[in-house]
Structure formats: C-alpha cells, structure tokens
Simulated assay, not measured.
Amino acid sequence: MSAKRAGLKVSNKAKIVSNVAVRRWEGTKYLRADAEPNWSQRIKEKEGDITLIASKPAVTITSTSTVLEAVERMYEKRVRGLVVVDSSDKLKGTIMATDVVNYLGGGSLYTIVEQRHGHDIFGALRSEKVESIMNPTPLYATVSSKISETLKLMVLNGMGLVPIVAADGTPYGVVTEHDIVRYLVNKDLGIKVKDVMTSNLVVTYESDTIKRAAQLMSLYGFRRVPVLSADGTYVVGIVSAMDFIAFFGSHEALKKLSSYDIEEVLSTKVSDIMSRDVVTTDEDEDVGAAASIMNSHNTNSLIVVDKNNEVKGIITERDILLSVALR
C-alpha cells in the first residue's frame, strides 16, 4: 500500500523527538564481536563487481569552484553529492547536499559564513570555494571492488555515497544507497516495515524557519525530516537537503532578498520549500514492497502508517539497506 497524502494524523504512539542525543549509526547493531558485519545470503548470491550497479559517469566539480557552482550543479543534475577533483581530474574529495545545508545555516560550517563573510549571502555563495566545505579525505572503492566490499564500506562508515575510482585515479562513477537497494531488493524479504523503521520522529513544523530545519538535519545527520502542522497533530510534508539545494540552486533564495544578510533567507518558512507529497507505507508491509514503493515514487523515505492511517514512524533507504544486508 502506498499513497501521496498530506494531513496524516500523528499517532499518539509515535514519539516526537527534539533536543536529544544524536542517533547512533544503526549499522553497529549488527556487528559480531570481531566487528565484522553479518552479511546475509542475499549479498553472497548477488556478489559481483561494483561496476554492475554504479551510477556513471560521476558528476564532478573542481575544488576551486565556488559553493554556488556546486549547488547549481547538484540542482541541475538532481544529485545529492558531487565528486571533487583536482586540476588533473583525480579524486580529491566529495561534497554532499548535507554539507551545503550545514554550511548555509545548519551546523559548524556556518561559522565560515558568519566570521569570513559577515552573513553576506553573496560572499558565502560566490566567493567561498568548494574545498572549504568538502570532505577532503573521502573513502572510495575501485572499479575492481566487489559489491560486498563497497557495501561494507558504506555500512561501517555511515556513507550514503561512495566514489568509484578507475585504475588511473580518475572518478569512474558513484554508488549510492539507492543503487544498492534497487539491485538487492525484491518484493518479498520476510521482514516487516515496523521491524526496521524509526519510530522516534525527529520533526520540524510548518511554521519553523528553514534555519531550524537545517540545524536539525545537521545535528542528527539526516537528509530529510517530516514537517508537522503547527499544532503537531498532522504530517503535512517532508523537507529534505535536496529542497535546500533546489531553493539555492534555482536562485529562488536570492530573489527573496532585500539585503545581503543570509539570515533574511534563513527566516523563510519551512512550508515554503518543503514537499507536500507524503508517500506512505503500512507498518505491516514487507520491506521489499516498501523499497518498490520508493522506486516507483522516486523517493528515499516513506512515512509509516498503521491500519487507521495514523503515522507511526519513518523508513529510509538506509533502513532497508541494513535490513537486507545485515540480518
């Protein structure tokens, strides 16, 4: 079962989380005493070179490009991460949509905007280089890596995107959680959604500012959070890191300015940039079917509802990946 709905009532059994400790990376739950993941038979049956499922070519940008150019590239290509290369086209880092959210008001990188640019949004976007906010030491796989090796890299390090590098050090492509879930999952896994979903909902409200949403994403390491009605009764949308990319990459954020102060943009309401399409799945649905729903609706998360259509939690591609690979 799936639907695109807004106004889903939040069950009183769903725990709304705010101002608590950062959620631990779930992959550690499935480690043996020797810190080796307990890979499922499904992985062994589908083993092969990572090039079988890699998205290619890699979407790249140079480390000396501006943050604005990076945001525009992500928006244009509809990707949540770029492979950063040097002048010789060799891998130098990665920059993710979540890094941009962190930089533009969500977390520790925002100090660059404050201290170096004095809250000047144009300076922060057009003067700051990608190298200031990228991950300069990315883990990567090679074209000869096995699917299981790459999956292990992702699981143990909480990575949603892994660069794939050719023998000469140039980027060949990338592998994302979406690529692996699509390859490994079929419609019947024998695992129910409610057994792997997150029932502690980290949320924002439609009346909140996008700065508040960005702070939540950066604090918890999430790419998206559900949006509740002002009274906290209903789920009315989802706001994601890619919504921020679209807001800035399309220059819509700059059209709203009457000054150079980025805080003016960050005071925009979450309801102005969120998606109102809320795709759902039933808590008793098979995880494989939930993955199919994600694929058909081109989304990486689903709101989980019970038989009364009340919200019980959220399930993401990462949850599905872990349930498939490590159980």
Rank of each mutant, 00 (worst) to 15 (best):
K92S: 05
S250K: 07
Y30R: 03
K255Y: 15
S148Q: 14
S18K: 12
A230S: 14
G160D: 05
A214E: 14
K13M: 10
S258C: 02
I95M: 12
L151P: 01
E283D: 13
V270F: 03
I121P: 05
L219G: 01
T66A: 14
S250P: 02
S292K: 04
S108W: 07
E149S: 13
S292P: 00
Y220V: 10
E47D: 11
V193R: 12
S145M: 04
R182V: 03
A58F: 11
R5H: 00
D282Y: 05
V235E: 05
V162W: 02
G288P: 00
G106Q: 11
S127I: 10
K129D: 00
V84N: 07
T209I: 06
E69V: 04
A325P: 04
M1R: 09
I303S: 11
Q215R: 15
H117R: 15
T60G: 06
A290Q: 04
N19V: 10
I112F: 01
A33K: 15
G27T: 04
V174L: 15
I121R: 07
L125D: 05
Y75K: 15
V71A: 15
N38T: 12
P136L: 09
E252K: 13
S87P: 00
I112G: 09
D284P: 01
S275A: 13
R80V: 06
M242W: 02
S301R: 10
I262D: 09
A246S: 14
D168G: 04
L201A: 11
K13I: 02
G27I: 02
L104S: 14
